[in-house]
Structure formats: C-alpha cells, structure tokens
Amino acid sequence: MPIPSPTGPLVTRDTVAAQLLGLGVQPGETLLLHSSLSSLGWVCGGAVAVVRGVLDALGPDGTLAVPTQSGDLSDPALWSNPPVPRDWWQAIRASMPVYDPLITPSRGVGVIPETVRTWPGALRSAHPQTSFAALGPRAAEITEGHAPDCRLGERSPLARLEKLGARVLLLGAGYDACTSFHLAEYRIPSPQVTVGRPGQDGWEAVPEVSISSDRFDQLGHDFERDRAVVRGRVGAADVRLFPVADAVAYAERWLPLHRSREEEL
C-alpha cells in the first residue's frame, strides 16, 4: 500500500508567530495558552516550534502561561479512564509519588504544555493537581503562592492572570479546556468536596470547591455570542483570543442560572 501523504498545512515557527501577530497578539502581553498540537496541521519541529513561535509573537517582555495539571495524583477510587480494581486502591494510595514541580509530568493537557513545563527558565506552581507553568518576566508573579487547598480559585495562578490583564489563547482547543471558567466556580455558591492525594506525610484529604467542565462548550458558545472574542486560524487550527477577566465575569453570571435550571429538572 502507498504511504499516505502528511496532512497539511505545513506549519513552522515563523507561521505560528506571524499568524498570531496577525490575529492581534501583542508583544509584551501575558497569554494563558490552551492548545492542541494535532489540530495545527503538519508542524515542522512539533511542540518546540509552536512554543518558540508563541514566544516570538510575545517578545522578550511577554509571558506565556499554560496549565500543567497532574490529575493522576488523585484518589484511584474516582478513576474512570481507565478505572482500576478496588483491591488496588490502598496500594496505589500508599505508593503514589508525591508531587514535585520539577519532575512530575503534566497529564491530559497535551504535549505543548509539557514542553513549556520543561523549557529552560520555566517556573511551575505548587499545587499537586492543578499547577500552571509560565515563561517570561511575569512567570514568578503568576506561579508563586498557589495554595494547596485552592485548585483554581482566588489563591491560584488563574486569579493572578486575571489581575494582570492576561488573555486566553485557545489554539486548536475548545471551550471545554478553558480553565478561566473554573475561577467563576469559586465566586458563586458551589458544592464542597473532599479531594484525596499523596502528601509529604502520607495520604491526605483536602476540602475543596467542586469544579466541573460539564457544559463549558455551551458556556463558551454563549460567551462568544455575547462578548468580543477574536477568532481566526493558525495553520489548520481554530483560534480564540479573549481576556481572562471577561471569561470569568461571564461565567459568574451564566453558571448559577444554568446550574439552577438543571437542579430543578
């Protein structure tokens, strides 16, 4: 059988930088990037080229932040993708490695955030499950002080990004990946949960706000309909660009309305 040709378009570091600047990315600004490498096309240099292209667009005064979550450092009783046998749970809890911001890999957020995490000079926040990594002059301000009992709330990098006037860049990623919406969950009445994870002194249970990305696609659709969102493409990827603060404020109004309707059903 003939070898299939690569699926284009051809995307390079220069392609990424030029097309982001054409969409309105400003040198010197701060971006929170959610991304999908495979959506871009055939990328010469892969994730490294994408990161270099974004950094080129931001320039030396700009800052890039990404989610570097490690949700596998969690209670195996809640795992579903895939689940593990019940008789394994205790052994997994007892032997699960403690979070180390230098070596714990990110999980479920794609290869581009993992590339940023390991980039020279990158800083990473301290939360063992919902950390963020950042590169640039504002990296320390974004990542420092991430409280161990605040996954995505007021004492997390999300609130810092909002305060700094950062914008969200969805690069081939959908609104279901938009972590900014979670900050709104901390500002509205939300259920409390107990989060299990490995700690320095053994397995620990931490009270937290319940967070969920259910219906974030619909929330994003309504947000884009009602608010100013820059839309375009980089390579073959759909791109969205908007302020973190706008997304949080819209979600603060949208989530209580739609969740209350669900509860009445």
Rank of each mutant, 00 (worst) to 15 (best):
P157W: 01
C178E: 15
A184L: 04
G46C: 08
D61V: 04
I92C: 00
G202D: 11
R52C: 09
G220L: 07
V193A: 08
P137L: 01
R124D: 03
D246V: 05
L10Y: 03
E141S: 11
L102D: 13
L152H: 14
E208C: 13
A147T: 03
S5N: 03
L255E: 11
L241E: 09
G62S: 06
I92R: 07
G235E: 04
A236R: 14
R124T: 11
L102C: 06
F223G: 11
A65F: 01
S212C: 12
H34R: 08
S36E: 07
G145T: 10
S5T: 08
G45A: 05
E154G: 12
G165R: 05
E263Y: 03
A139F: 10
W79N: 10
I92L: 11
A77P: 00
Y250S: 04
G46V: 06
S210Y: 02
A17I: 07
S106F: 00
L102I: 04
A18W: 00
L183H: 05
L241I: 15
R233L: 00
G220F: 03
E262Q: 14
L10Q: 13
A228D: 15
A18T: 13
A236Q: 12
V98P: 06
T115K: 13
R138F: 08
V239S: 08
R261P: 05
P2E: 14
L169V: 11
P128F: 05
P76R: 00
L33W: 07
V11P: 13
G145E: 06
R253G: 15
E114K: 04
V244H: 13
P76Y: 00
S80A: 13
G28H: 10
V209S: 02
G71C: 06
W89H: 15
H146C: 07
R197I: 03
G196H: 07
S180C: 09
L255Y: 09
V54S: 04
A140W: 02
L241H: 07
R155D: 14
V230S: 09
D176P: 01
M96E: 07
V54H: 01
I3W: 03
A205F: 08
S125G: 02
W254M: 10
R155W: 10
Y250F: 15
T130Q: 05
P85N: 09
A173C: 02
L164T: 10
A184T: 06
S35T: 03
A228S: 15
P157N: 08
C44I: 09
G153P: 02
R13Q: 15
L152W: 02
R13F: 05
L169F: 08
P4T: 05
A49D: 04
W89Y: 15
G45R: 03
A57D: 13
T15P: 00
P9W: 04
A91L: 00
V168G: 04
G202H: 12
V66C: 12
D246C: 03
S210H: 11
L20R: 11
G28E: 05
L164R: 07
P198S: 04
E185D: 04
L23Y: 06
R52W: 00
G232Q: 13
A57E: 13
E162G: 01
Y186W: 15
V51Y: 07
F181G: 10
E114M: 06
A159E: 12
T12S: 13
V66I: 13
S212R: 05
P6Y: 03
D214E: 12
